[in-house]
Design a protein around this nucleic acid. Structure first.
Length: 271
DNA sequence: CTGGCCGTC
DNA sequence: GACGGCCAG
């Protein structure tokens, strides 16, 4: 009997190990199928809302998911859930930006941004992932950055990111999709020819059944944007038209149509 | 908070 | 190249 139990014990330990290895590889899995949306509702609680990919290269990280556009050498979207508990005030040492090995076509080299005149602007902000060293450092992959005008990044874009954090604190958890509009002939920087988007968008979704709400922003990537962030609100339909991305394909159709057509600010608290 | 730049090792 | 310190909006 004792021997039997010890054999069962060994089997369980091996099983757990194999399962953990499986989870590790699954986290950096790359989806090859064009617009194929894997059902990951049991894998990550935010995956249900993932947008479609226009490139077929979706990369799943532990704390955000992205769709990589190799031609523009950056993500076309980065999606993640932002919970109230993600927002902590811990001073963390900024690591260096490093290549995303999960991007099969190779993500941009940080040197392409050097002396380009543009910031290595986070798409999933570092401040949204301050909870642990691991979550923080994961935002420093070069697949999570786009060339941003410095005054824009430190100015109104920063203000928008802070507002989203305030919403996560007020509403417990929100879901965020953000990226540059990768359309047409864009200026490029560096050896990797990273495109400089003329516009950046950010969509925030609060899941709450029939009371779910959505808001979207479209901002020009330039200095001296001093209007209130409220004035940059557009409908999700507009951003879909600009980008060719379907942002909430798995949302119930009636709700999707209703929420994506709206461009009003009344459901959300602004400072 | 958002970052870059530069001297030093 | 990596690191730490300093700078700006």
């Amino acid at each position: 009997m004792k021997k039997f139990l010890s054999i069962i014990g060994v089997i369980i330990i091996i099983g757990v190990y194999v399962y953990e290895q499986y989870l590790k590889t699954a986290d950096t899995d790359v989806d090859e199928e064009y617009n194929e949306q894997p059902d990951l509702r049991n894998k990550k609680d935010n995956a249900y809302y993932l947008p479609t990919s226009t490139t077929g290269q979706i990369v799943y990280h532990n704390n955000y998911t992205l769709s990589y556009n190799e031609a523009h050498e950056q993500a076309e979207w980065v999606a993640y859930e932002l919970k109230k508990s993600d927002i902590v005030y811990v001073d963390r040492k900024r690591p260096y930006f490093y290549e995303d090995k999960a991007v099969k076509t190779k993500s941009a080299d940080w040197r392409s941004y050097k002396k380009s005149g543009y910031d290595k602007g986070h798409l999933c902000p570092a401040a949204d992932r301050r909870k642990t060293v691991e979550t923080y450092n994961e935002t420093f992959l070069t697949s999570n950055i786009s060339p941003q005008n410095h005054d824009f990044n430190a100015g109104i874009w920063n203000e928008l990111e802070q507002t989203v954090r305030s919403w996560a604190k007020s509403y417990q958890d929100v879901y965020v999709v953000t990226g540059g509009v990768l359309k047409g002939d864009l200026k490029t920087i560096g050896k990797d020819q990273v495109s400089v988007p003329n516009y950046f968008y950010k969509i925030i979704f609060k899941a709450d059944g029939a009371h779910s709400k959505m808001i979207a922003f479209l901002m020009p990537n330039r200095a001296n944007e001093k209007k209130p962030i409220k004035s940059y609100v557009v409908s999700v339909d507009r951003i879909e038209a600009e980008t060719g991305i379907d942002f909430f394909p798995k949302l119930e159709d009636a709700l999707e149509i209703e929420l994506e057509a709206k461009a009003n600010t009344s459901d959300w608290r602004f400072r």
